[in-house]
């Protein structure tokens, strides 16, 4: 190994440390007795978890987050899939504009999405409801779902669908018997990833949620008060949930594809 290789490796380790340090410390501090943690650490405790999860509003927030994530992920995945299929199968005028519409939402700053959604959903009368958050998260999640499904479709032999027609399947039947089974890993992957996006999103949710707070919105509001290690406890649960979802999502698309 060249000396420069060692330097590069050390650099990589430093970079990964920077990226993962906040996640790890949050987990460590959630089990540490100090209110203002420092080095050396205090004693081991599960106190913060007990305090946090004895509050009914924490459970309500987790319930809200779960409902929103389950619904928004389903809608995002459906929307992402039909869009990816359209891109895969058809060429038409204004397709670049169509694709821009599909992929643009993540480039709009969340604060702006929040403001625009707040005004718009208010007009529609669903501001302050969980449905409002679901709608907003679907807009934000669909592009990710679309990207995952499109990637999978690009691995599909275009003759596969035609082969189904050739063997007597109508277009609808071929969709059900061939395209969807082929894309199934990507659909599950997209579902997990968009659930994670929804589960973690707090700015737009904060704008439109009203009294129906999701977990990150609750964290945001606790943060505006004082330093409170309960956040580490709740945050650790949030980390583990979204990390699990993102890891499953990735494993499903990276899995040896037998196409």
């Amino acid at each position: 190994m060249r000396p420069s290789d060692i330097a590069f490796r050390l650099y990589l380790v430093a970079l990964f440390t920077f990226v993962f340090l906040p996640i790890l410390t949050s987990m460590v501090f959630s089990l540490n007795s100090d209110r203002f943690p420092t080095v050396p650490l205090g004693e081991f405790t599960t106190h913060w978890y007990k305090t946090a999860f004895s509050r009914p509003e924490v459970w309500t927030a987790f319930g809200n987050s779960l409902i929103v994530a389950v619904c928004a992920a389903a809608l995002s995945t459906a929307l992402g899939f039909v869009t990816a299929y359209t891109d895969f199968r058809y060429g038409f005028r204004f397709k670049p504009a169509y694709l821009a519409l599909a992929l643009l939402p993540p480039t709009i700053p969340l604060v702006i999405m929040g403001l625009a959604m707040l005004a718009w959903l208010g007009r529609l009368g669903i501001s302050g409801t969980l449905s409002g958050i679901v709608v907003a998260h679907t807009v934000m999640g669909a592009p990710f779902a679309m990207a995952i499904c499109r990637l999978r479709l690009s691995q599909m032999d275009p003759a596969l669908e035609a082969a189904a027609w050739n063997l007597g399947a109508s277009q609808w039947r071929a969709m059900r018997a061939v395209v969807i089974p082929f894309c199934l890993p990507a659909l599950i992957s997209a579902y997990c990833l968009t659930a994670a996006v929804s589960f973690d999103e707090f700015i737009v949710a904060w704008f439109v949620s009203g009294l129906n707070k999701t977990v990150p919105v609750m964290i945001l509001e606790i943060l505006q008060g004082n330093v409170d290690p309960q956040i580490n406890a709740i945050g650790t649960v949030v980390f583990l949930t979204s990390m699990a979802l993102v890891i499953v999502a990735q494993l499903l698309i990276l899995r040896k594809t037998n196409a």
Binding site: A159, A163, F182, L184
Partner: peptide
């Protein structure tokens, strides 16, 4: 039709 790529259903 027997396809050039065979187009067998991998799933």
């Amino acid at each position: 039709l027997v396809w050039q790529s065979l187009a067998l259903f991998p799933f």
